[in-house]
Design a protein around this nucleic acid. Structure first.
Length: 505
RNA sequence: GCCCCUGUGGCGCAGUCUGGUUAGCGCAGCGGACUUUUAAUCCGUUGGUCCUGGGUUCGAAUCCCAGCGGGGGCACCA
C-alpha cells in the first residue's frame, strides 16, 4: 500500500469498509490518471458551451462540453453516458474508433473506461450527432476526466430518499432534484425583484449592524454571543435594522431599505427558522396609508417577476387558500374581524369573557397568556387562519405595537398594518412613532412586561430615544421575510432554505 | 414542549405483525462478453455494528424498556 492511500485510510477510518474500499479503488484510478498526465483535479480553464446550447446545436457542429457524468452504458467498443450541467443533461458517446489516441499508457478508449466513474466531471470535445434512435448526442473525439469523484452518487433510479441525508447533504438533493435547483433560482429572483422595485422608487440599500448591545424591532429571544475584544456579550439582531434605519431618517436619509439575515433563538416550525432573510424599508414623509399602497404594488411586482402570475393556491392550516394579488386588497378592522369570527368584542369584553373566547377557539391551550393584550393577540392568531386575503389588518391595539404611532382618531389604536394572506401575516408596517416622550413611555412599559415575565417584550433602547429627541421626520416602515417566498412556493420555510440548520450529527 | 411516523451494505428496498438455517433483492463497485444504448443486456463476484444501550428468550433485525437521529402534525415568535 502506498503512503498516500495509507494516509487517506487513516484520515477516514470511521468510514465503513464498503465505502472505504470504493474510495480506495477510485483513489487508485485518480493516481493512474495523474501518472498518465491527465490531472484528475485539473484547474482549467475549459472553454465550453452549456448542455442546453449543445442540445440546440446543429448536427455536425464541433463543440466542447463539460459536466458531471451521471450514467454510463458500455456495449463493447462503444459507450453511451449522460452528462449533467446546470442547464440540463445531454448524452455523450465514446467510440473506440473515433476517439483520438493521445499519449496514454494504453489505448484511449480502454484507459478512459477503466478509470471513469459515474460522478466524475469530464471535459469532452466532439461532434454534435444524433444516434439511430434520434437522441441528441456528442460523439467524443477527445475525453478528459477533470475531477475525480471518490464517493458513489445515490442510486440512479430511485435516487436519495432518506430525508435526513437530503437535508444534511443538500448538494445531492440539488443534483438529483431539478425542482430544488429551480427553487434556488426563484429565491434569487424573488429578492432581486424586491430590490429592483425599491431602487426604482428611489430607495437606497443600506447595511446596519448584526451584532448589537440592545436588540429591537421585534418580539423575540435573541442569540447571545461573547465579543472578545470588547469583553462583553452582544446579541444578534432580531430585525433588519429597524432602529438603525430610523436613525438614518434622523440623519436626513429619506428612503432606505435593507435586505439581510436576522436571527431569532426560538422554535423551528413550518413557518419559522432561526436565521432567515428579511427586508425592511423606511420612507420619510409617508404614513401607513401610503405604506399599504406601496406594499400592495410591491407584492404584485414580486409575484409577477418571480412567478409570472398574481394567482396562487396556498395550502395552509388545513385549508387551500386561493389568492389573487390583483384583486382588491381587503381591509380587516382588528376589532370587527375578531368580533365577526370569534363573537367577542375585545374592547368591551371582560378579561373572563376574553379567556373563554380563547378557550373556545384553541384546540389546545398551554400556559395562560401573560396579559390581556397577549390574550387578544392569541385570539387574532386563531381567527387569522380562516382569512385568505389578500388584505391588510388595520386598527391594531397599541399595547402590542411599541414602535408604532398612535392613531390620531383613537389613542387605543395604532397606525399599523399587517399583510394577511392565506391565514398568516406576511408583512408588517406602521407609521413610525417619532414622539420621543411617547417612545420612552412605551419602552418603559415593555420593560415592565419583561420584569413580569414576558421575555419577548422589547428592550428599551435609550440611545434610540436620544436620536428621536433630535427629531425624526414622519415616516412609514415595513418589513417582510422570506416567509413570503415560502408561501408563494406553497412549501414549508425549511424546504425553501438552501441549507437549513439541523442538529449536529 | 406534546402527539404520530421512521432508522436494515455507499444508495433504493424486502424481511418485523406471527422470534427459528449462513439477513435476501436491485443499483453502484470489482472481473468477463458485447460497436447505437438510454433503468442497455448477459455471466461471475466483493461488501452487513440490522441507529445505540439494556432486557425477555434455548434463540432477537423481529418482542419489551430507555436513549439518539430524521420527518410530519399541534402549539409559539416574521
Amino acid at each position: 500500500m502506498s503512503e498516500t492511500s495509507e494516509q487517506i485510510e487513516n484520515s477516514t477510518e470511521s468510514e465503513s469498509s464498503v465505502l472505504e474500499s470504493i474510495k480506495q479503488v477510485r483513489i487508485a484510478k485518480a493516481k493512474a490518471l495523474q501518472e498518465a498526465g491527465m490531472d484528475p483535479y485539473h484547474s482549467g480553464p475549459f472553454e465550453k458551451v452549456s448542455n442546453q446550447e449543445a442540445l440546440a446545436a446543429e448536427m455536425g457542429t464541433q463543440l466542447n462540453i463539460a459536466g458531471r457524468v451521471t450514467s454510463s452504458r458500455t456495449m463493447g467498443n462503444v459507450t453511451f453516458g449522460n452528462l449533467h450541467d446546470e442547464t440540463g443533461d445531454i448524452q455523450f458517446m465514446l467510440s473506440k474508433k473515433q476517439l483520438d489516441e493521445p499519449e496514454l499508457p494504453e489505448p484511449a478508449y480502454k484507459f478512459i473506461l477503466k478509470n471513469l466513474d459515474v460522478g466524475d466531471f469530464v471535459y469532452i470535445t466532439g461532434e454534435r450527432i444524433e444516434t439511430k434512435t434520434g437522441e441528441p448526442t456528442v460523439l467524443a473525439t477527445n475525453f478528459r476526466i477533470i475531477t475525480k469523484s471518490l464517493r458513489p452518487l445515490p442510486e440512479k433510479h430511485a435516487g436519495l430518499k432518506d430525508s435526513d441525508a437530503l437535508l444534511r447533504q443538500r448538494y445531492l438533493d440539488i443534483l438529483q432534484n431539478r425542482d430544488v435547483q429551480e427553487m434556488i433560482y426563484k429565491k434569487a429572483k424573488f429578492w432581486k425583484s424586491v430590490r429592483s422595485f425599491l431602487e426604482e422608487r428611489g430607495f437606497i440599500e443600506v447595511q446596519t449592524p448584526i451584532l448589537e448591545h440592545t436588540t429591537g424591532g421585534g418580539d423575540a429571544k435573541p442569540f447571545v454571543t461573547h465579543h472578545n475584544f470588547l469583553d462583553t456579550d452582544v446579541k444578534l439582531r432580531i430585525s433588519t435594522g429597524e432602529l438603525w434605519q430610523k436613525k438614518l431618517l434622523v440623519g436626513g436619509l429619506e428612503k432606505t431599505f435593507e435586505i439581510g439575515r436576522q436571527f431569532r433563538n426560538e422554535n423551528q416550525s413550518r413557518e419559522h427558522a432561526n436565521d432567515y432573510d428579511q427586508m425592511e424599508f423606511y420612507w420619510a414623509y409617508a404614513n401607513y396609508e401610503a405604506g399599504m399602497a406601496l406594499v400592495e404594488q410591491l407584492f404584485k411586482h414580486v409575484a409577477l417577476e418571480t412567478f409570472g402570475t398574481t394567482q396562487f393556491e396556498m395550502n395552509r392550516f388545513g385549508k387551500i387558500h386561493k389568492i389573487d394579488l390583483d384583486h382588491k386588497w381587503e381591509r380587516y378592522d382588528f376589532v370587527e374581524v375578531i368580533e365577526e369570527h370569534a363573537g367577542v368584542n375585545v374592547m368591551t369584553a371582560s378579561d373572563e369573557e376574553l379567556a373563554q373566547a380563547l378557550k373556545r377557539l384553541e384546540a389546545t391551550h398551554e400556559e395562560p397568556a401573560v396579559s390581556r393584550a397577549k390574550t387578544v393577540d392569541r385570539i387574532w392568531k386563531v381567527v387569522r387562519r380562516k382569512i385568505s386575503g389578500p388584505g391588510f389588518l388595520v386598527n391594531e391595539l397599541y399595547e402590542l405595537s411599541p414602535l408604532a404611532k398612535k392613531s390620531s382618531e383613537d389613542p387605543n389604536f395604532v397606525e399599523r398594518f399587517h399583510v394577511v394572506i392565506a391565514g398568516s401575516e406576511l408583512g408588517n408596517g406602521y407609521s413610525e412613532l417619532n414622539d420621543p416622550i411617547d417612545q420612552l413611555e412605551r419602552f418603559e412599559a415593555q420593560e415592565a412586561m419583561r420584569q413580569a415575565g414576558d421575555d419577548e417584550a422589547q428592550e428599551a433602547n435609550y440611545d434610540f430615544v436620544t436620536a428621536l429627541e433630535y427629531g425624526m421626520p414622519p415616516a412609514v416602515g415595513f418589513g417582510m421575510s422570506e416567509r413570503v417566498f415560502s408561501f408563494f412556493m406553497d412549501k414549508s420555510l425549511r424546504e425553501c432554505q438552501i441549507f437549513p440548520l439541523l442538529r449536529q450529527e
